[in-house]
Simulated scan of single mutants.
Amino acid sequence: MDGKLVIVTGANSGMGFATTVELAKMGAKVIMACRSEERGKQALEQARAACGGAEIELMLCDLGHLASIRSFAQAFKERYGRLDVLVNNAGVVSLKRATTKDGFESMLGVNHLGHFLLTHELLDLLKAAPQGRIVNVSSGAHKAGRIYFNDPFLTKGYNVAKGYAQSKLANILFTRELAKRLAGTNVTVNSVHPGAVGTNIGVDRTTGFGKTVLRMVRPFFRTPLKGADTAIYLASSEAGGASTGLYYIDRKPVQVSKRGADPELAAKFWTWSEQQVAQ
């Protein structure tokens, strides 16, 4: 990874932080894309301390705000002429229905549409790298997912499991359709299931709601580093540059759900996603 330029979204905690530290240790220059300046600065200090002065930078990007994503991409383009690896790691779980600044249901808005736009904005820089890579963090929850085209933002009958599964199926469909569209280029795109990981996802930062549950179940979960292992592998190994359009668990490609493998659904959902971020 010496000299490689990497962006990791949601890099201030959990798997994003672990991914940042490990890739920086391998010699990559890592940009931590974070929403909160305060939490981002704390994480940046910790990451640099953990890596012994490796090249790590913080740039602010709110994946729940299309304008913030565009300004992040513009600022990045003004400083760099290429991007070797984009790790779309950030994710939210909303126990109660919430919306992004653009009015999207938060899980579909952040977990999918934010990354969809960010990837589009950075594609030319990924193509400018000798071998560009995109790694999308999905989940086995995609198997329970469906795309609710009649009410994608779940305005009626909201349910956290339903919304999360939809957003993770979205990651799979995006990966597969993007791989098809990037055929013949030097850019690969794959998705990963990290396993059940003990991070703060699902904990309300304002009220702390969800912390007690997390404390109880955390001993049964993987560590963030173990959860990030496959994303790190795809970002840094030969295999990550040789395969595209695949879904990985524990460094091995596995089959996605029937819906996840549906090319017509992927194409239809791509068109819908384009319409959403064009606003």
Rank of each mutant, 00 (worst) to 15 (best):
residue 206 T to M: 14
residue 175 T to R: 12
residue 187 V to G: 03
residue 183 A to V: 10
residue 247 Y to Q: 02
residue 120 H to G: 14
residue 156 K to D: 15
residue 12 N to A: 12
residue 231 A to N: 09
residue 11 A to E: 05
residue 166 Q to V: 07
residue 250 D to A: 13
residue 34 C to V: 13
residue 158 Y to L: 11
residue 266 A to Q: 02
residue 276 Q to M: 14
residue 26 M to I: 01
residue 279 Q to Y: 08
residue 220 F to P: 00
residue 161 A to N: 13
residue 28 A to K: 02
residue 24 A to G: 10
residue 208 G to L: 08
residue 146 R to I: 11
residue 173 L to I: 00
residue 58 L to C: 05
residue 144 A to G: 10
residue 33 A to C: 08
residue 198 G to F: 06
residue 221 F to S: 14
residue 68 S to C: 09
residue 252 K to P: 00
residue 166 Q to K: 09
residue 22 E to A: 12
residue 128 A to F: 02
residue 89 N to A: 11
residue 33 A to V: 11
residue 275 Q to H: 12
residue 153 F to E: 09
residue 14 G to A: 03
residue 200 N to P: 00
residue 208 G to N: 06
residue 45 E to S: 15
residue 86 L to H: 03
residue 74 Q to P: 00
residue 135 V to S: 14
residue 70 R to F: 07
residue 110 V to G: 02
residue 39 R to H: 15
residue 116 F to E: 07
residue 261 A to M: 05
residue 271 T to C: 02
residue 149 F to K: 02
residue 65 H to F: 06
residue 214 L to S: 11
residue 120 H to Q: 15
residue 92 V to Q: 05
residue 175 T to Q: 09
residue 86 L to Q: 06
residue 59 M to G: 11
residue 165 A to V: 07
residue 34 C to Q: 05
residue 80 Y to V: 07
residue 146 R to K: 14
residue 207 T to G: 10
residue 17 F to Q: 06
residue 73 A to I: 01
residue 203 V to L: 11
residue 81 G to M: 12
residue 104 F to P: 06
residue 37 E to P: 04
residue 73 A to C: 04
residue 260 G to C: 09
residue 182 L to Q: 06
residue 49 A to R: 11
residue 127 K to G: 10
residue 242 A to K: 15
residue 226 K to A: 15
residue 197 V to K: 01
residue 173 L to F: 10
residue 252 K to F: 06
residue 230 T to F: 13
residue 266 A to T: 01
residue 262 D to L: 07
residue 57 E to N: 07
residue 133 R to V: 01
residue 115 H to W: 07
residue 158 Y to G: 06
residue 200 N to F: 04
residue 112 H to R: 04
residue 95 L to I: 12
residue 165 A to M: 03
residue 211 K to G: 08
residue 248 Y to P: 01
residue 191 S to M: 05
residue 277 V to R: 01
residue 39 R to D: 13
residue 226 K to R: 14
residue 171 N to T: 01
residue 254 V to E: 11
